[in-house]
Design a protein around this nucleic acid. Structure first.
Lengths: 206, 206
DNA sequence: AATTGCACCATACAAATGTATGGTATTTAT
DNA sequence: ATAAATACCATACATTTGTATGGTGCAATT
């Protein structure tokens, strides 16, 4: 239980957080129904109490629901848009999510998106097959950063090394040679900068 | 552009998807305003067209907004990382290896929460200081999984090894000895199972 | 004994919601 | 040339929205 919140207030806050993690914004009536209240105003007053205690703030009337701005912003759910190759470039399959959604990136500025990694060329950076990289398409890619790039219709994640006249895409695995991009390369496009890695833990019995 | 959708229909669909990736559910009026329409019904009819073409389905009146159920071509934003409650100060246990920053445990939201890792005892599992582990408190901990436990007011991340009469908490670093918990241990409590790892990428110039 | 906080209900109201219906102009297809 | 689809506007309507206000019962302080 959080300091200062009563159990019921905490329950309501938890419920709102839970729904938000599913990309849903509950209304007062929905919260009331879930907790068995006959009236919305009960929830309303609880939310006012929670707000008064400083645990949330409310942006009035956004999207018709309740906009909660938490003091402590952790993560909000984001869509996984596709897969990228860490080793040999991954061919984008025409009917998979990749093809559809990689161009969609241009339409989704302002926040990051997620891509699933295949291949082991980044294993020395502790990025493995199945990992999910968080990519920000709006950041300026700096030397040494991991980036996602499209090369001849193939999406790859590599470390960016800028040199005089060329751009090199390095693996973190000595088995792979760097990819050298001449500035005149027609089908090269930087998609974004890798700002994080997420990995689901495999069950490992031992 | 998707097959069968006009450019405007595609733009509207993209806009809805973009907002959903930010945990926002737009109303007809908001969409209309964004596209410069003077009337909601224009958007309404476009959504009807998109629905008629099978790209979305609408669940009537959930959360006051528009509920879109996509057809596979797009990804529904899902709670990849989970959320933790807001505003509560973290209790920090500074001086032991592989500690975690632990929010007040008594309050656990229904889905997972995030913990920050300190120490290097899990380095062979590629979990390092600064990494954030995603913990699900509702899963049954199985043998071999990474778990978060509280031991004498210290929170630790370890690999769980169940034996006949005792529970052992193993590090993934040979420098550290396993911790052996007798079943009668008074101050031992399992908090949850580590289901994921998140790491922010440090800028690494080379 | 009086007060305060908590949990809940009921009612009222302006504003916003999704939906329906009818209309106009342009483009595309037959 | 006619029909159909597209793109947009306007108006109307029942519901739902968040908010405000007032009230009841209860527990804990003061």
């Amino acid at each position: 239980m959080q300091k200062g919140l009563t159990k019921i207030q905490q329950d309501i806050l938890d419920y709102v957080i839970e729904l938000r993690s599913k990309s849903l914004i509950p209304t007062l009536a929905e919260i009331a129904k879930h907790f068995g209240y006959k009236n919305r105003s009960t929830v309303q007053q609880h939310l006012q109490s929670i707000e008064k205690k400083g645990f949330i703030k409310r942006n009035p009337k956004i999207s018709g629901g309740i906009e909660l701005t938490f003091d402590n912003n952790y993560f909000i759910p984001r869509p996984v848009l596709g897969e990228v190759a860490a080793g040999n470039p991954l061919t984008i399959y025409p009917d998979s999510i990749d093809t559809v959604d990689l161009p969609t990136i241009a339409h989704v500025p302002n926040d990051s998106f997620l891509l699933k990694v295949k291949g082991d060329s980044l294993k020395d950076a502790y990025i493995f097959t199945g990992d999910i990289v968080i990519v920000n398409p709006n950041l300026q890619a700096e030397n040494g950063q991991f980036v996602v790039a499209v090369l001849d219709n193939e999406a790859v994640v590599k470390r960016l090394v800028k040199k005089k006249d060329v751009i090199e895409l390095h693996s973190e695995n000595p088995e792979y040679e760097p990819i050298i991009i001449e500035s005149t390369h027609p089908n090269f496009q930087l998609v974004g900068v890798v700002i994080g890695v997420y990995r689901t833990m495999a069950k490992k019995v031992g």
